[in-house]
Design a binder for these strands. Structure first.
Length: 575
DNA sequence: GAACACAGCG
DNA sequence: ACGCTGTGTTCT
């Protein structure tokens, strides 16, 4: 393998002139704590290993060179977070790890992907070597250069595979984007994911502002309250309220409650089960302790991650099989609604919060092209009320609250893969609507008579599963999926299209913000919601930008029905 | 350390 | 009934 180790300014002219013609550059970095030691860059003919400890001046070369280039790397989020710190902003990105994930790989390390695609084994033992030492070994530099060589090989194959995915009608605008043109990409979902890598890197760098003092105060307060309640409970019942095993014995053997069993044959003591016995004192005590415990856990989780009045969660770009993101350390996608006020913008700033209304139902309607539901959405009707009126055969004005709730469960059933039993359970546990299995079956039937395209779709999926044991398909932007159960097969395309839409909306927002010269920080993404931090004085303009971006994305993904966006600007995340 | 139960979110 | 993560207890 041919490479050049750059430790002197004298190498710059050669580096610049040889890489200048390349539209994209393969890139990797080796880092020490908060510093970059090596930047490996190359095209199909050259590899340069730049030692920034030896020639820090190379940063300026990289700033200029990469500002006009696409970069290709494995897990680029990692490299970008460093590069941004050095004010190096590549023009476009292609992440081979994300590409692999999109194509269904489960093991994602560069060495595994290289082994599968190139039948080449990679020695990764140097990755953890000492990159901070004065003079690097020849082996270390060679190892660093190898990564670029591997990237060349897997990029060509991954691009080819992405471009071989079945074509979709939506998102043709994306084929003119810089990402599509530079890397030669044809699949809209892949184009979105590749550009989105930069957004995830920024999201992680931005962090989310919190009220650190309030979190600490509440944690102490909840800690005291929990301790007291726990003590009382343990003394009174000689039972640990956090042990479901002991709890099961107390509730059934000693208190005589008739509780159902869990899958593994334990006594079920979850919230839904116990809510039927809320007249029992002990049950009230348990539920109260659980509530406080949960709040305390969340406060603790947040507190342990606070730095400078912010938390910096890790976001996995494709965290769910459907393409949704996930968040951890701390998880900021499952913050209890009544704790969102703890996420506070600092003085002079606000959070702009926007979400898509009923987005999955809208996606489902267009995905299966159910004319009746699409028309109802176009007319801006209350969809749950409308469904209730069709299923029950009476005017919308006569639909009771309970009937609307039942219809809501039916509509959700579309997204999750409905069954009569599932419907009855869900209506009871989530909405307190009690219906028999026969009634549930009747409602389901009426529902599918009203929305025939959904009936046909579900039937088709079932046949396909029986015959082929699996369903392969794609979201509206062409994100591929494979499902082996009915519920997955009907849910994946809907949830997946929702993921496509949110990511595209964030990209459009970025474009809109640049165009209008506004300043705004993306701070959280929660499946159908975008949270942005900005200065108070420009909040209205940023809010308009965000709404506009989300609507534009909505029009690209759903061509035949409107999306609706709700937004507010507020000092905190709560509304 | 793995598996399970629970609880929070969309 | 779909998709996640964090914490705690219990099993192996």
């Amino acid at each position: 393998m041919d490479y050049e180790y750059v430790i002197d300014k004298a190498s710059f002219p050669k580096l610049i002139s040889s890489l200048k013609p390349a539209p994209y550059i393969f890139l990797d970095t080796e880092t020490t704590g908060d510093k970059i030691r090596l930047v490996q860059i190359g095209d199909y003919a050259n590899i340069f290993v730049i030692d920034l400890f030896e020639v820090p001046e190379a940063v300026e070369v990289l700033q200029v060179l990469l500002s006009a280039k696409g970069i290709i790397g494995h897990n680029l989020k990692y490299d970008l977070k460093y590069l941004y710190r050095y004010n190096i902003h590549p023009y476009a990105t292609f992440d081979t790890m994300i590409a692999s994930q999109l194509l269904g790989f489960e093991k994602l390390s560069l060495s595994h992907v290289a082994r599968v695609l190139l039948s080449k084994s990679l020695d990764k033992s140097f990755q953890a070597s000492d990159w901070a030492k004065g003079t690097l070994d020849r082996e270390q530099i060679e190892y660093a250069a190898t990564d670029v060589e591997v990237l060349r090989g897997i990029f060509d194959i991954l691009r080819e595979r992405l471009n071989s995915l079945p074509e979709v009608e939506r998102g043709s605008e994306l084929l003119r984007s810089r990402t599509a043109r530079i890397f030669g990409l044809k699949n809209p979902a892949a184009i979105v994911e590749m550009a989105f890598v930069q957004e995830v890197a920024k999201l992680e760098l931005n962090g989310i502002p919190v009220d650190a003092q309030e979190i600490e105060k509440l944690e102490k307060e909840f800690g005291r309250r929990l301790q007291k309640k726990m003590m009382d409970f343990i003394i009174k019942h000689r039972t640990d309220p956090l042990s479901t095993k002991q709890l099961g014995r107390l509730l059934t053997e000693r208190l005589g409650l008739n509780l159902p069993l869990t899958m593994k044959g334990n006594v079920a003591t979850d919230d839904k089960t116990l809510s039927e016995f809320s007249h029992v004192r002990e049950v009230q005590e348990i539920l109260e302790i659980r509530k406080i415990k949960k709040a305390l856990d969340k406060l603790k989780e947040l507190r342990t991650h606070i730095r400078n009045s912010r938390v910096f969660p890790e976001f996995r770009q494709i965290g769910a099989i459907t393409g949704r993101m996930s968040s951890s350390n701390p998880n900021v996608q499952n913050i209890p609604r009544d704790m969102r006020g703890l996420f506070k913008a600092s003085e002079g700033k606000v959070l702009v919060i926007a979400d898509f209304s009923q987005i999955e139902l809208r996606i489902a309607a267009e995905y299966v092209r159910d004319e009746r539901m699409m028309e109802a959405i176009r007319q801006g009707r209350d969809l749950h009320r409308y469904t209730a009126s069709l299923v029950l055969g009476k005017p919308e004005t006569e639909i009771s609250k309970e009937e609307r709730q039942l219809a809501k469960a039916l509509n959700f059933g579309l997204i999750y893969g409905i069954s009569a039993k599932g419907l009855a359970d869900y209506a009871r546990t989530s909405y307190g609507v009690e219906i028999s299995l026969q009634e549930a079956e009747r409602f389901r039937k009426r529902f599918f008579e009203a929305f025939k395209s959904f009936r046909d779709w579900h039937a088709k999926v079932k046949v396909q599963l029986r015959e082929e044991r699996e369903v392969s398909g794609s979201t509206l932007l062409g994100r591929p999926f494979k499902a082996t159960t009915f519920t997955d097969a009907v849910n994946y395309p809907i949830q997946g299209t929702g993921a496509d839409l949110l990511k595209l909306a964030v990209l459009m927002f970025e474009v809109e913000i640049k165009r209008t010269n506004l300043e705004a920080k993306l701070v959280n993404l929660v499946h159908d919601e975008i949270v942005v931090e900005t200065r108070k004085d420009i909040a209205d303009a940023v809010k308009a930008c965000l709404e506009e971006a989300m609507r534009k994305a909505g029009k690209m993904v759903l061509r035949d029905i409107p999306v609706e966006v709700e937004s507010t600007a507020s000092p905190s995340w709560s509304k």
